[in-house]
């Protein structure tokens, strides 16, 4: 028996919106400590990792670890049938080939349930080494979304350079070029708008804007985002969800000229 109750459907809806355009099918690994998901896009250029801790749920019970293979598009269609403030209970009996979605309105006067067929997904998990990053930047997630969207008007890739002057995002395209520079915030008036830059070493790498735009679909999950860069490692873009867990993305760099 597996059972997990989300206090609000909205959180699960936001998570799905942030993942479903990168990954079609994924295994939700449910263990005593919580739910995790790790999946790459078809091109193996990006990877999503999700952690939802058991203690972040209203109710969480796993008798035996379960791997729920789910088509995210189907799950997203079902989740659209939930009101944002409905509670969502996912449950699966041992040996069952479906997972049940139970939606309950806040005053318990409406209940609906959907059963989704589970899939056998042959997924390969990757060993992600604990990297020492050359630079770490924390900024408002809306700011990152804006930069990525603005620069996408001029080209396909962004060069991110971290130096003493700050962090610079540069795009070059057939019509011209553009850049945005962010500097470490000095005032602490509005900590939620602050930009923090920790540079251990200057670093510069290029990334496909197409993927960064998809990652920024997670901006509604978290007011702040962390991006971490190393010379010889994929970019890490991390959205923390308070005490519940996180949604992280890794992106392989573009190399050469």
């Amino acid at each position: 028996m597996f059972e997990a109750r989300f206090p609000e459907a909205l959180l699960l809806k936001k998570i799905l919106e942030s993942v479903k355009d990168l990954v079609q099918d994924a295994n939700f690994e449910c263990t005593e400590s919580g739910i995790t998901l790790q999946a790459m896009d078809n091109a193996h250029v990006s990877l999503v990792t999700l952690l939802l801790r058991g203690e972040g749920f209203d109710l969480y019970r796993v008798d035996k670890p379960e791997s729920l293979g789910i088509n995210l598009n189907s799950m997203s269609k079902i989740m659209r049938c939930a009101a944002n403030n409905d509670t969502v209970t996912l449950d699966k009996l041992e040996g069952a080939d479906t997972v049940r979605f139970l939606f309950e309105s806040p005053n318990a006067d409406r209940m609906s349930e959907f059963h989704l067929k589970l899939m056998d997904i042959d997924s390969e998990t990757l060993e992600i080494p604990e990297s020492m990053y050359h630079a770490e930047i924390e900024l408002p997630s809306a700011e990152l979304r804006r930069i990525v969207s603005d620069l996408s008007t001029m080209g396909d890739s962004v060069r991110i350079s971290v130096s003493k002057e700050g962090v610079r995002f540069t795009v070059r395209g057939d019509e011209g070029s553009g850049s945005v520079i962010l500097r470490q915030s000095t005032g602490v008036d509005k900590p939620e708008e602050a930009i923090h830059i920790v540079m251990n070493e200057p670093v510069e790498q290029s990334f496909a804007l197409k993927y960064l735009n998809l990652f920024c679909k997670a901006a509604p999950l978290s007011a702040r985002v962390q991006i971490k860069l190393s010379k010889d490692a994929p970019l890490l873009v991390n959205f923390s969800m308070n005490n519940i867990g996180y949604l992280s993305y890794y992106l392989a760099p573009k190399i050469g000229d």
């Binding site: 790459m40 091109a43 193996h44 990757l126 060993e127 496909a208 994929p234 392989a252 573009k254 000229d257």
Partner: peptide, 14 residues
Amino acid sequence: AQKQTTLTGYFGRN
């Protein structure tokens, strides 16, 4: 031109 790398070149398979 730039070449897109893949993650499998950086992360080991489990």
